[in-house]
Design a protein around this nucleic acid. Sequence first.
DNA 1: TGAACATCTGAAAGAGTGTTCATATGAACA
DNA 2: TGTTCATATGAACACTCTTTCAGATGTTCA
Lengths: 134, 134
Amino acid sequence: MPERAEHHDDVLRENVSRVRRRMPSDDAVADVADVFALLGDPGRLRILTALLEGPLRVRDLAEAAGVSESGASHALRLLRAHRVVSVQRVGRESHYEIDDTHVRALLQLALDHVGHSVLVHVADEAPAEGGCQG
Amino acid sequence: MPERAEHHDDVLRENVSRVRRRMPSDDAVADVADVFALLGDPGRLRILTALLEGPLRVRDLAEAAGVSESGASHALRLLRAHRVVSVQRVGRESHYEIDDTHVRALLQLALDHVGHSVLVHVADEAPAEGGCQG
DNA sequence: TGAACATCTGAAAGAGTGTTCATATGAACA
DNA sequence: TGTTCATATGAACACTCTTTCAGATGTTCA
């Protein structure tokens, strides 16, 4: 084996050890993977996309996301368990909203990348009383 | 039903229709969900995290990610099929690298959020802007 | 109280997925 | 040429996940 190749191997080995040092902890990786996995289902993704613009009721989320109301409830339960969304009961309705700025950022970045132009934050151009706490 | 409630309902319905108008196409949602799903597996996530700093061989990726070489190969095959990584053959080795800037951005954002401080671009090790958003 | 409504929950079916083992391909070297 | 090495591939298994259905919970209103 020529020495150039040996040197090449050394460089690769060095790269590997550096990469391994900088690898996040198993817990951190698991957390990130969990979030991505939650976003990896089309139904949940549509639900969260709908929630980007503000709180919505379960039935509205189901309609907007094209899933059954039961399916939406299951999805929301999961998202709630992971603290991605929070719920506020108003009478017999449940109003859900995104409660994780990291997830919101990831979602907006991904949708931007896919060429989905209009995605405004809740704040600006406020639909005024659009909120559910009226 | 009091008129306040009726008006409230109107507002909600309006929100729903606006949300539905702004909902990305099924294809766009499916694409985004696919990417997130790919990032949703710890093994693949570690592989891609390792690749953030530059190209690596399969065996090195397997070691860095803590998966078998066969497992790494399967994962890379999947990532390659989705054009997330590209491969360059060097002798009998395969050197993989991230080939999707969107995925790279999502990954870095997610790792930043989880508190993983050092994640520099391939170029060099400038820490400085390592922080989240300031 | 009882009926209508919104949501939640549990269980079961079915599809999908990751992992492993064994083997195949193809390049390097002796 | 035959052997060794790096990677790729195929199949099988176990496992998880999504979806659906039926019914439960809790609220509003007459």
